[in-house]
Design a protein around this nucleic acid. Structure first.
Lengths: 109, 109
DNA sequence: TCAACATATGAACGATTGCTCATATGTTCA
DNA sequence: TGAACATATGAGCAATCGTTCATATGTTGA
């Protein structure tokens, strides 16, 4: 007979967040899971930037950057403001820095 | 003439980590970017668990869990020990909890 | 109002990902 | 040693992802 985990499972599943929240968590981290988006967030670490400056910095097309900014914005990781023709993006809150910071610590150990 | 960001770019790119590190960061977060793996990490939050207990808990096949544990282990997010036929997995370090914790805070605001 | 600029968006395509299925490896006990 | 159990692994397939290309939207100044 395969071994029995009934007790353990009862305990652990009681402490598990809802499937919906776990799905949202995965979706959030998926946004961090791409080098281009990580670079964009790092670029915005200190100051806001317009789309074409980010494109110049990363040597990528304006379109590619724009698509990724949309993803970042949908996840509430960046915010933007318009100034004439230009749109400036900035990090939306401190979580971005602390999440990246923790990741940084993990890989540089 | 499109507008000029030379000064800004010089400053920002000086503060950017290496491409290799940014790639590693993206790869790390990619591992967090899947609901199954998030669930596994949550299951291990309090205590170690064997593979079949995790499979039972998540109602998934042993094979699927085993594949994902391999990904988690390659990223140094979980560690394992053998006890007879059974292999117990546990979280590898505190970064897992703090990264998930920061993500949790971000989405529950 | 129209040309130039800045950004956004939709379709399409190649690459990556997560699961399943079949099977292999490793361990215990009779 | 061989049957039963626990886990790992490789191939294959559908689904998702990130980019490009073409084009649309929005803003300014002449």
């Amino acid at each position: 007979m395969p071994h029995n985990h009934e007790e353990l499972l009862k305990h652990v599943s009681a402490d598990m967040p809802s499937d919906e929240l776990l799905q949202d968590l995965g979706d959030l981290f998926k946004v961090f899971g791409d080098t281009t988006r990580i670079k964009i967030m790092y670029a915005l670490y200190e100051d806001e930037m317009c789309v074409c400056a980010i494109a110049d910095l990363l040597k990528m097309t304006q379109s590619a950057i724009s698509h990724q900014l949309k993803v970042l914005k949908a996840a509430n990781l960046v915010a933007s403001r318009r100034e004439g023709k230009t749109i400036y993006y900035r990090l939306a809150d401190e979580h971005v820095k602390s999440i990246i910071g923790q990741g940084y610590e993990h890989i540089t150990e």
